[in-house]
Every structure is written in structure tokens, then in C-alpha cells.
Design a protein around this nucleic acid. Sequence first.
DNA 1: CTGTTAGCGCGTTCAC
DNA 2: GTGAACGCGCTAACAG
Lengths: 329, 329
Amino acid sequence: MRSIADLARIAGVSVSTVSRALTGKGTLNEKTRERVRALADAHGFRLNVAAQNLRLGRTGAIGVLLPLGHERCQHLSDPFFSAMLGHLADELAERGYDLLLSRVLPKRKDWLDDFVRSGRTDGIIVIGQSDQGATLNRTARSYRNMVVWGAHDPANAYITVGSDNVAGGQIAARHLVARGRRRLAYFGNIAAPEFAAREAGFLETLPDDIRRDVDIVPVHLTPEGSYEAAMAYFGAGNRPDGIFAASDIIAMSVIGAAAEHGIAVPRDMSLIGFDDVLVARIATPPLTTVHQDIAGGARLLVDLLCRRLAGEHVASVTLTPRLVERESS
Amino acid sequence: MRSIADLARIAGVSVSTVSRALTGKGTLNEKTRERVRALADAHGFRLNVAAQNLRLGRTGAIGVLLPLGHERCQHLSDPFFSAMLGHLADELAERGYDLLLSRVLPKRKDWLDDFVRSGRTDGIIVIGQSDQGATLNRTARSYRNMVVWGAHDPANAYITVGSDNVAGGQIAARHLVARGRRRLAYFGNIAAPEFAAREAGFLETLPDDIRRDVDIVPVHLTPEGSYEAAMAYFGAGNRPDGIFAASDIIAMSVIGAAAEHGIAVPRDMSLIGFDDVLVARIATPPLTTVHQDIAGGARLLVDLLCRRLAGEHVASVTLTPRLVERESS
DNA sequence: CTGTTAGCGCGTTCAC
DNA sequence: GTGAACGCGCTAACAG
């Protein structure tokens, strides 16, 4: 009982009748439809989705790609990515799409074209531009069914959904200054445009005298990497009274490293993170952070992609981040 | 330039020659092979994977299913799941498989059979048995290509890879007792067999006089849920001097709630978690925890599944957890 | 070494 | 209302 033909034989009808009965399409006598369906149930038969899709010229799947351009390790265990992935899975499932997950190490310049042309999915969602803007643009010129999570840039040929990272950086700057902090530091990765924007917004908002002395500390985005960077930073005798960490994970690492050096948060030092992932709430102390609407972003990504698939013309969307005050500042 | 036939026409050869040139299979003149390949490159042509797979009687994808039986919210943002998923993505990619991600709310009894019979994947990996043991067994009786992450039970018809949770619970009990703690509590969910086993191992190892007074605190596995449970527990005046939390996320919530009640970890109370996810290392204080080998587990899951696909007979594997001492105990 | 042909499992026009 | 035939894009015999 592998194919529609087997069931047709058993039911004593033609394959097209079985097809009509099981898909519900076309016109068919209600009784034969019921009979065929009952027979299918009894034999545990279901239409083969792959063949169905081949015939319909679609795949029924959307690819979710995580380019690991600037960071090689463990991207997926980053709470931001996994939260985004969870919401994408829900949204896509709701629209009847499968989610094809692919972590890609962009060693080959053509990784995106390769993926697209292999025809495995009807469309793709790229989470994070990483340092792959050029590749994304190249593909976008000949391929429409793509949406990217990340900062909007009018020069890009592709559609994005993402937070206003510059505004996020501004929020962080205003908050630390309002707390009376003056010796500040920024912990972040600068290879990715999102992080560069957070830094830019942060710096441009600070008063000149404060900005002049800001420490810029480049870190890896992994817990280990950021912890080590923070340990080295404090170990060198640096004692800022306010830190803007470009992600909540970095912020948590900073708390840990600070504690090792006898620096109490928020008493000696105010700390503000970015993302507002779930663990930010259960950190000790709970993190003040710049909130990104991950669920809303996921919904928008899927929505925009589906509308592109339907031939609509859609534009990029920028989400406004907001301050969430907890106890680390 | 959609199909192999178009390219064949341009190259002035037959479709099978193009197929042989591009797949590398079969025997072909080196020069024509090169010529066809160059032409394909020039036109940006790639074989359609879906059609290829249909012809080969495979899909080239493995389904990774997350049954959300006992917990509805945000399973994927649980660091354990996302770490597992990341490793599975790597392992499957290495073997040339796509990863089809599916979160499923098992409202229908037949969700697993439905998925299997839709023929979307060549095999499936189920992460966590949740409370779906009966469904898994039913499917396993007629479907071989399935491997499950979770506790082994000889009564099951399906193959599992999972940690020895009883042993993990024993480790936690011995550790807290060795620290001189006597008023103990267990925070965990008991609907899933994994958690029930951790509790059982924990209780059975404690001396009688300690076990008699252990508090069993049922919690949800989300950060919010576990935080609230811990707040209520401490708010009711409970003051244990040692806690075994069934996951690191629960443990972190406990630290936060304890701090709110003036309880310092580890001074007033020793705390031990479970999983050893990355955030355990950057928690404040860093968590003592029972380590599960997630990367090794993922590798085994994929390995066992591939061997089943190849027709081999393979058996379940149980991984031995181990204590990782940090500063929360 | 290369071309012809017959499907993989299904949907959909056409007849009847 | 139902069946026969064709094709989605590809691979694998079988010929030549």
C-alpha cells in the first residue's frame, strides 16, 4: 500500500478518483468519496507529500538559514536565535509550511545561491545578516522569495525585518546617563551590522566628555567568549560604573566576571543588556535590557514572505525597541 | 532554464548525459562531463533536489519533533532543546540530510502516525518522550526509522538515547548530603518520565531521616513558571538548606527567588541543577549541576538512526551523567 | 561512451 | 460523475 494506485485497485476506482476523494478537490459523488476515504483510513494510507509537491511545483517547506559568518560556535544555543526559531516554527506551521533548518558556515561564496537553486524550499528566511550582506544582495537580485532578519538598509536588494538598533543604543546611553554613570564601556561584537548600529547609537547619544572615555570591548557572542573578555577587561584594572552589553548573554557574563573582581551590580556598576530573552528575567540580578519583539518579528517575517510568495510587493519593517527596567542598573 | 531537459537541449546532449555529468554517477567522457558542468555553472543550473529524491525514493530529510505534551509554552527556547537542536543540525548536515523541524501539540492521538505516513522525511528523531509514550509505542510497532531522546525502558518498542536520570538524581542527593545539608527540597516537573526518574534517584539515595522531610515542589519548566513556584515556596516561609532543581533553568529561577527572600546561595542554601547548559556557567553564582552530554547524545541519535535506515539492528544507549562542581553549592 | 525509455507518486486536463 | 493519459524533474536500466 504505497501509492494512490494501490488504493485505487482495492477500491475498484481509478487513480484520479482516489486523488479527488483524498484532496477534496474536483467534483465527485459524495458516496464514493466517503468510501475511498474510509478505505484509506482503514489501510493507514496518506498522500505522499513529496510527490504531491513535485506535481504542484512547490515543496511546502520554508528554509530558515543561520549564517555563521562572524561567529562559528554554537549559534543556535544563543537564546535569541532559539526564541526566534520557536516562533518561526509556530507561524510557519500555522500556514501549513514545513520548516527546513539549516546552519550554514559560509565558506563558499555561493552558499545562498546553492541553497536557493537546489529547490528544496519555496522560500527562505535568513536570521541575521552576519557579515554576508554582499552574498545576500547577490542572491536577492535574482531571487524574490527571501526575507532577512536584520537591520534595514535602503541600499539592500532584500527585504528585512529587524529592530532599530541605533535607537536601541540610544536608549541604553540615555538610561546609563540618567543613572548618573559617567565612566562607561560597551561590550559587543562589531563584525555584524546589528552590533555596529547598537554601538553607533550608544556613542552618538552620549555627551562629548563621557563619550571620549568610553571603553569599546570587542567580544565573541558565546558565553565563554564574553566571559573571558570581561575577565580580562576587569583583570586589567578597568573599573567603569556603567556598561552597555550588546546582548543579554554578554551582560550575564559581565555580571559573573564583575563578581569575581568584587564589583557588585548594580551598586558599583549599572549594567544594561539587549534582547530581553527569557533568561534576562531570571538572571541575578534580573537584567535591565533593551527589549526586542522577537515574537512579533517572527510573525512579520513569515507574513512578508508569504505575501512575496503570493506576488505582492512588500517593504521592509523596522521594529522599535524599548527599555525594560529591572535590577541590574 | 528550469530542468535538466533545457540544459540538455543547449548542450546538444541527452538528459541522461546531463544527469550523469552533474551527479558524477555512471560512466561518461571526461570532456563532455566538463562541458556540461561548465554550461550548468554558466546558467546557474542545479539539479532539483525534490525531483531527485522522489526518483530515488527518499526525501533527504530527517524530521526532528518536539512533542509538547506536558508543557505548552516556549519549549524551544529551553536551552537544553536548542543546544540539542544545534548539534543535531550539525550532525545531520554532515551526513547530507536536511533537518525538518516540527513542534507538535499532541492534541490528536495520531500525530506521529500522521507525520510518518505523510512521507515528508526518511526518518524521525523525537526529542523527549513527554507524556507521549503510548503514541510512540504505537507508531514504533509499524515504523522502524525512529529514534527518541529520553529514558530507556525495556518495555518500549522504540530505541532511545538518553541520560541515566536516576543516576543523576543520586549524584545530586550524595552531593547535597556531602555538603552537610539536611533540610532538602526538590523542584521539578513530574509529568515527564525523565523528571520522575531524577526525583526517584534523588529520594532513594537520601538517608531516611532526611528523605522524610524533603519538600517536593512541582514546577513548570519555563523560567516564569519556575520563578513563581519558587517565590511562592519561599514566601510560605520554607527555608531549606539544600535544593535539587531538575533543570538549570529552574535552578536559576530558584536563585533569583531566594535572593528576593534574603537567602544567599550557596551561603544559606546549596543548590544543584541539571543539564549543564551554557548559561549554567555564567549564572551568578555559576551553577553546580549534573552534566548531560548533549553533543554526544545528538551524535548518537543521528548515528543510531542512520544505522537503522541502513537496516542494521541497534540498541538503546544510556549515557552516564556526571557532577560538575561550581559555586552554587 | 551516449541516447531512449520507463517510471518515482501524484494532479489535472480532456473525453466519455 | 468518472477514467485515461500526460507530465512535474529526475535516475537507471537497457540498447546501441
